[in-house]
Amino acid sequence: MPDKIKRGIGSILVFLAIYFLADFMIGTPTYDVYVKSMEYLAAVIGAGCYWIGSKD
C-alpha cells in the first residue's frame, strides 16, 4: 500500500478515536452543542497533527 494511503487511514483512525473517546473523557451529563463542537475540532486537529507528523 502506498505511504499516503497508510497515512490517510491512520488519520481517520486517530480522528475516530479522539472523537468517540472525547465524550467518555469529558463526561458531560447533558448534551451541549459547544462541547460537541470542541470534540469535533479536537478530533480534526488531532488527525491533522498525525497527518503532518507522520510525513517523511
Rank of each mutant, 00 (worst) to 15 (best):
M1K: 14
P2K: 13
P2V: 12
D3G: 11
K4C: 06
K4W: 13
K4D: 09
I5D: 07
K6Q: 07
K6H: 12
G8V: 03
I9Q: 06
G10E: 00
G10R: 05
G10M: 01
S11Q: 01
I12E: 03
I12C: 07
I12Y: 07
I12F: 10
L13Q: 04
L13F: 15
V14P: 03
F15N: 01
F15T: 00
F15V: 04
L16I: 13
A17P: 02
A17C: 04
Y19S: 08
Y19R: 15
F20C: 02
F20G: 03
L21G: 06
A22H: 03
A22N: 06
A22Y: 05
D23P: 01
F24P: 02
M25I: 15
M25Q: 01
G27W: 09
G27R: 09
T28G: 08
T28L: 09
P29V: 12
T30H: 15
T30N: 14
Y31E: 00
D32Y: 14
V33S: 12
V33R: 11
Y34M: 09
Y34S: 09
Y34L: 11
Y34E: 00
V35P: 00
M38L: 13
E39F: 06
Y40R: 13
L41S: 12
L41R: 01
A42E: 00
A42Y: 02
A42C: 05
A43S: 14
A43R: 06
A43V: 04
A43F: 00
V44N: 07
I45N: 02
G46F: 01
G48L: 11
C49M: 10
C49V: 12
C49I: 11
Y50H: 10
W51N: 06
W51I: 07
W51C: 10
W51F: 14
W51D: 00
I52K: 14
I52G: 02
S54A: 12
S54D: 06
K55F: 03
K55C: 05
D56C: 07
D56F: 08
D56G: 15
D56A: 13
D56Y: 05
